[in-house]
Design a protein around this nucleic acid. Structure first.
Length: 496
RNA sequence: GUCCCUAUCGUCUAGAGGCCUAGGACGUGGCCCUUUCAAGGCUGAAACUCGGGUUCGAAUCCCGAUAGGGGCACCA
């Protein structure tokens, strides 16, 4: 297996194109880069690759920045904070790419091509029909500078294409080992478009070289471009960074890689859906990488912070096969992190979700609720369904069928609730232990199971069949509302 | 069509020729705890894609088949 080259100070980058919301796969790529930088005391750089002016990009850069910040992946150099190699936005670096594109042409490593998009399409279709890979057939390689002058005079726009040499190309992948391709299967790719913008292939190589990037960790779909990149580095006479291709994230159900439409595809789905960034980064680590031997203390092997992971992150241990994204497992992990938060902090995190649901939140009440619900939440957002009723004045009385416990009827339920109300009403203090101490004997007196009695009370007071522990719950709701709701339930049963 | 990558329980993974009767986690079945739901504890089911080699010995190495994924833009 290929060794990690640490002879130069480690510098890695996350280089997204700002096309919208940050994708979960991009989040993992960023995380792995961040871990790698931290592992070796290097720099993590953010660079925006906006070399396609046809694509919408105005607010998208902010989406990337928000996503990274939410995940807690702070960069050392980037468009917003600058750095020794600024600017970190490719659209602001155009002359640099043009300079190096021209250098390649002058040195016979690249050439001008004047075909239009329509012409390329025809060439491509023809090649395909012959069983060749679609693409360009290199016909403009034969043009002389005199031809260029003539075509320029006609006002025809041109692109600069790379002149792929003969032979074969091999690069060493840090996760997959050496990978080889025959050059005649590779394209004479466009490096500089007719509008003067570079393509990704040129721009990222120039920037990675100029910015002294030492390692490139990126998604698997780049493997098939890497031979081209190797050849371009060679043409420049530059040292190529070591590359590591991490597997794509696939849909949990169905086929193919995760796309923007899928649930859980974007970072904002998690930030808005009540997931904790700690849980998401932890999960992302577990998908495509692992903490090491899994045969010992299993919990610690699955649950760890990104700082812990950074201590031992080894990119050569990244897995090789595509991984499916499992929201259920993430939910479990999120629950683990929720249970670990200090109650006050959890209350503060929960509050916005309740308010977003239109509830008036009393922070003291919420603080009393948190211990009851903390171990019942898989996401912060679930607080609304788990405990929203605490903040609703008007909890409707359930239908009789939901009020009457198993093996009981309307009359006995009415009797039980009525007696429960008297019992609770007579208590000197409205405190949960006292309530339970008083109500258990009542169940015995009524010759029903405690669960039956408690179930009826739960339904009457909370309006639901499931709730946090009953007596703690009604202690928080308070004496008057509790008794009122029980009385209302008793009345509703009279009608039947 | 063509090139490339990949292949262990449903899912994420451990496994670098004998430690594998294949380990862990999520999920799932059962039991315990229990006023519901969780959380927790105990316990069970569940996988090396197939076929050929190499070797005394293969989940591990090689070849092939199959299947999945990715690429083949003046997008990244």
């Amino acid at each position: 297996m290929t060794e990690i080259d640490l002879s130069r100070p480690v510098r890695v980058r996350f280089a997204p194109s700002p096309t919208g919301d940050m994708h979960i796969g991009g989040g993992r790529t960023a995380l792995f880069n961040w871990l790698f930088a931290r592992r070796y005391g290097g720099k993590f750089i953010l660079r925006i690759e906006d070399t396609d002016d046809k694509r919408f990009k105005e607010n998208a850069r902010q989406g990337i920045i928000d996503g990274l910040q939410w995940l807690g992946l702070q960069w050392d150099e980037g468009p917003d904070i600058g750095g020794p190699y600024a600017p970190y936005v490719q659209s602001e670096r155009l002359p640099l790419y043009q300079k190096w594109a021209n250098w390649l042409v002058e040195n016979g490593k690249a050439y001008r091509a004047y075909e239009t998009a329509e012409e390329i399409e025809i060439i491509s279709a023809t090649r395909r029909s012959k069983g060749l890979p679609p693409g360009y057939d290199r016909r403009a390689r034969n043009l002389t500078p005199a031809d260029w002058a003539r075509l320029d005079a006609e006002g025809r726009p041109f692109v600069i294409r790379f002149k792929m040499p003969d032979g074969e190309t091999t690069f060493d992948d840090l996760v997959r080992g050496p990978i080889t391709a025959q050059n005649d299967k590779l394209q004479d790719q466009v490096l500089l478009k007719s509008d003067g913008f570079p393509t990704y292939h040129l721009a990222h190589i120039v920037d990675d070289h100029v910015m002294e990037i030492t390692h490139v960790i990126r998604a698997e779909e780049w493997i098939n471009s890497t031979w081209l990149h190797k050849q371009i580095y060679d043409a420049f006479g530059w040292q190529m960074p070591q590359v590591a291709h991490v597997p794509v994230i696939l849909k949990i159900d169905g086929k193919g890689k995760m796309s923007k439409r899928d649930e859980g595809a974007s970072i904002s789905y998690f930030s808005e859906g009540g997931y904790l960034p700690e849980a998401v980064t932890n999960y992302l680590c577990n998908v495509g990488w692992n903490y090491g031997k899994t045969d010992e203390k299993s919990e610690e092997i699955q649950v760890f912070t990104k700082d812990q992971a950074a201590e031992i992150f080894d990119v050569t241990r990244v897995t090789t096969s595509g991984t499916k994204f499992d929201l259920v497992k993430l939910g479990w992990l999120n629950g683990v992190y929720i249970r670990a938060i200090a109650p006050l902090e959890l209350a503060q995190k929960l509050r916005p979700y309740l308010e977003k649901a239109g509830l008036q939140v009393n922070i003291d009440t919420l603080l009393r609720i948190v211990p009851l619900v903390q171990e019942r939440l898989k996401t912060l957002k679930e607080i609304v369904e788990v405990a929203g009723f605490f903040f609703e004045d008007d909890v409707p009385t359930p239908k009789a069928e939901d009020l009457i416990p198993k093996k009981m009827d309307a009359a006995s339920t009415r009797e039980a609730l009525s007696r429960a109300a008297s019992t609770l009403s007579a208590l000197p203090t409205f405190e949960h232990a006292a309530m339970e101490a008083a109500l258990r004997p009542l169940a015995e007196t009524l010759a029903i199971k405690p669960g039956q009695l408690f179930g009826a009370i739960r339904a009457a007071v909370t309006g639901r069949a499931v709730s946090p522990p009953l007596f703690e719950t009604i202690e928080i709701i308070g004496k008057a509302p509790t008794l009122a709701r029980i009385e209302r339930a008793v009345d509703s049963l009279k009608v039947v």
